[in-house]
Design a protein around this nucleic acid. Structure first.
Lengths: 334, 334
DNA sequence: TACAAAACCGGAAACGTTTGCATAAAGCCG
DNA sequence: CGGCTTTATGCAAACGTTTCCGGTTTTGTA
């Protein structure tokens, strides 16, 4: 039950392999009649070109690689869907890898992808150190970073985290809160750093000082950490006016801890998230948050990558403006 | 900046290409000394074997294909993570495709995958018709179906949906509910059919009759449909004792509609979901549901697929026992 | 009608591996 | 020390395409 090759098709159609190849490429130099015959032979044999052989002749493989920390995270799974769809439309397939926030795994994945002759790479790097190491491997392979970027030389598409955090913090200030706590995220996370900077800037404008609590870089389960530390916070009694959570997932964990401790949101403390994952919109949650437009990010990233693959080599940077989504977890300070 | 080939390595190490190939395969018939030399040359040149060429020689590509309806659905994204991880551990990469519940896209994806000489295929088929069509394409390529299966001939791993639904329905009956509504899912969905069958069976045991509301097969946004129809249900005033939702996502939409209509859960109506997606565990949601153990499913699926790839050709069927997760959305009937 | 230009197609090399077969060197036995 | 087995390596074919370079045949033009 071996698969038909181009030679089989050629034999059946009574032409040469070269001709078949040209028909498949829909090149102009063959007669309509021959094309017909060849196409017919193709379907008769159920012929499917062998991608490996194609890749070998030095041309496109039509595969792009994508490495993210974890697709089961709604943020990345949303992006992944958008990416896969746009890529498929353009005739590209995507090879997936989860780095699980592990530098070695991230590098190994990229290495494997390179061996596969991928045409381009999309990566959500876990750290600046890690990204720096990619560069050596990648060479001048088309590549765009998604979500975060730590290099002046790389193309990227990301949300303007500083602006988003700034806008959100201003909103909190506008509601009269002054004791605002920035909660969560790994201290090594660049994204956290940027959001925190936007947050600080907004506070500084009003001359108020902010607090923060961050997770050590090496915590395995950030969710777990968030829950435990929120619990501790609420039990300590030093509950702030408002909490600016690093992410929606973090915010959800904070809610959970609050529930546990009898702290009411938003009556006792306002809570603001970041990401606008789908569950934030549920009535029972109804979390005020900032939308990163991950879907759009994915689409743009693929678009930019394809541009690069097709020859455009300048660096591109797309900064999407995040949007504050006001729901019910933040209210005016009494 | 061309990549180094095996010949370059061979030249640098002063051996033949064949020898290099054998070193890479860590074959026993070469001397330790030569191995050293070759390995050294490899790192010096930053050599990475060309996977296309490897695939061409008729051997393994170490790629498996995975097609699911939509990775942004938490059910599949959880499974995808598990799959990718297990596959990576075994040295396999995974090519991802979303069928978006579209038969043509599903088939096209499989076709592309075949052209890529994948070693095996994991698919969550969208319908029996669709799956029947795969069979012709796939031939005897290793393949295991995940989540659903409609063919006696295919290997598969799935949760025992009938048993899960049955157990859940018995639980509802045990709480004293008699007017129980099975809500949601596409009428064309085999999974829905099976869950509904389990549900009916449990009811039949007690001699009670069940109602059901299903979505037409062609609705685009099932979530939207669920929300609207739940709204309609609650507004009609014909609120049942309990609702058995086809999935957690559906249940979430039902909650949303209930909120909107002032119907209280669980005081006015008990609600039970299915899937145990992560958000079901949040205190604000705290949905009673059935766990499908999607993570475990993914792991087993990869395991079975690898077995097939490595030669074992009998059909395997793994039916995981689902687990009822009791939370707070179902209470005793008043 | 003759000849150049187009149009169409085949031959063969090339892509980077793996592997069966051949071969050379080395070790073993008596 | 001569034949024989082992061990270690090289040669070359094969995998399925694409594409360059020509070679026929047809068409157009004078």
């Amino acid at each position: 039950m071996k698969r038909a090759t181009i030679k089989d098709v050629a034999a059946l159609a009574g032409v040469s392999a070269a001709t078949v190849s040209r028909v498949l490429g829909d090149r102009p130099e063959i007669s309509g009649e021959t094309k017909e015959k060849v196409r017919e032979a193709c379907v008769r044999l159920g012929y499917v070109p062998n991608a490996a052989a194609r890749g070998l002749t030095g041309r496109r493989t039509h595969i792009i690689g994508m490495v993210v920390p974890d697709v089961s995270n709604p943020y990345f799974s949303g992006m992944a869907t958008a990416i896969e769809r746009r890529a498929a439309q353009a005739g590209y397939r995507v090879l997936l890898s989860n780095s699980m926030r592990n530098e070695e795994q991230e590098l190994r994945a990229i290495d494997h992808f390179l061996a596969r002759q991928i045409d381009g790479l999309l990566v959500a790097a876990i750290s600046p150190q890690s990204q720096a190491k990619h560069r050596a491997l990648i060479g001048n392979l088309p590549c765009v970073y998604i979500g975060v970027n730590h290099s002046e030389a790389c193309s990227c598409v990301m949300a303007d985290n500083a602006a988003g955090a700034c806008e959100a913090a201003r909103y909190l200030l506008g509601l009269g809160h002054r004791d605002i706590l920035f909660f969560g995220g790994r201290e090594t996370s660049r994204t956290r750093e940027i959001r925190h900077r936007g947050f600080q800037q907004a506070l500084a404008e009003q001359g108020v000082e902010g607090r923060q609590i961050t997770a050590p870089g090496n915590v395995g389960q950030l969710r777990q950490w968030s829950y435990e530390n929120a619990l501790e916070l609420f039990r300590s009694g030093k509950v702030p006016d408002a909490i600016f959570a690093f992410s929606d997932i973090t915010a959800l964990k904070i809610m959970e801890a609050a529930e546990e401790c009898g702290v009411r949101i938003p009556q006792d403390v306002s809570l603001l998230g970041y990401d606008n994952i789908s569950f934030a919109a549920l009535p029972r949650i109804d979390l005020t948050t900032v939308s990163q437009r991950k879907f759009r990010q994915g689409e743009i990233a693929v678009g930019r990558l394809l541009e690069q693959i097709h020859g455009r080599r300048e660096r591109t940077v797309d900064l999407l403006q995040p949007e504050l989504i006001v729901r019910s977890t933040c209210i005016k300070k009494r």
